[in-house]
Amino acid sequence: METAQQLDKPALGTNDAARDKAINEQAAMTQDTPYPDQTVGTPFVDDPKMRLRDVEVFYDDNQAIHGVSLDIGKNEVVSLIGPSGCGKSTFLRCLNRMNDTIDICKVKGSLHLESQDLYDPKLDVVELRARVGMVFQKPNPFPKSIYDNVAYGPRIHGLANKKYDLDEIVETSLRKAGLWEEVKDRLHAPGTGLSGGQQQRLCIARTIAVSPEVVLMDEPCSALDPIATAKIEELISELSESYTIAIVTHSMQQAARVSHRTAYFHLGRLVEMNDTETVFTKPEHDLTEAYITGRFG
């Protein structure tokens, strides 16, 4: 045992050194590289679904996001990766203004969904969230029946006037979420009685029942086992045919599997954004390389 420990120590030491080096490099780079040219790769696309420029987020005096600019294309799956606390979730939550619920949070910059300014004071946030849906880290079905969970969004937005229409929306949404076959015989059983993976798919069904244009996913698989994760990932690929998806994930394999383009965040800055393949095979930036090869994160 003792010998093993001794063997481990230098190994750990080198890791720390590598990490320190990477952080120092990063710090040096952010100092040297003038804003906003720090982002390498191709953050912009033609005719984007969401056009986000110079986004800055503050918690009181603490700046969490520093001038992030990127585009999310139509029917594209964009994954946001990066070490904990790098601001990727905060950034995601700006896209449907979930940050509004935090009093001390201030968002600056220009954020557009097609031609709609997200932070236009005249914009009703309720309307925005009907266009930009969100799936959360932990499955959070309402303590209601499966049917009512899916029907909730259409009901509050008045999307279905007749019971028949509502039934159809519920069925289509559950089918799209790949849950219909599993729950069609117990639509009126409580949604909280499903397994974790089923609950998360129920939450996805609930989100797409409102027919949003963009679906935001904040680490949707971090609370799930590998099999459930595989199902959700498969689902994401299918959904990208009809929706634009932005997904925050801690798993680089997941980002590689599901997304078209990948954005790498570091300490509140967007370091690199490129085709997923490029990011994982030929990262342009040293920090990205350091992260995806597991030197820190």
């Binding site: 932990k138 303590p143 909730y152 509050i156």
Partner: peptide, 18 residues
């Protein structure tokens, strides 16, 4: 009441009142 339930409802576009 768990905050996740509030977030879920707000994420779907429910107003504060709803």
């Amino acid at each position: 009441v768990p905050p996740s339930i509030r977030q879920a409802a707000m994420g779907l576009g429910a107003s504060k009142m709803q």
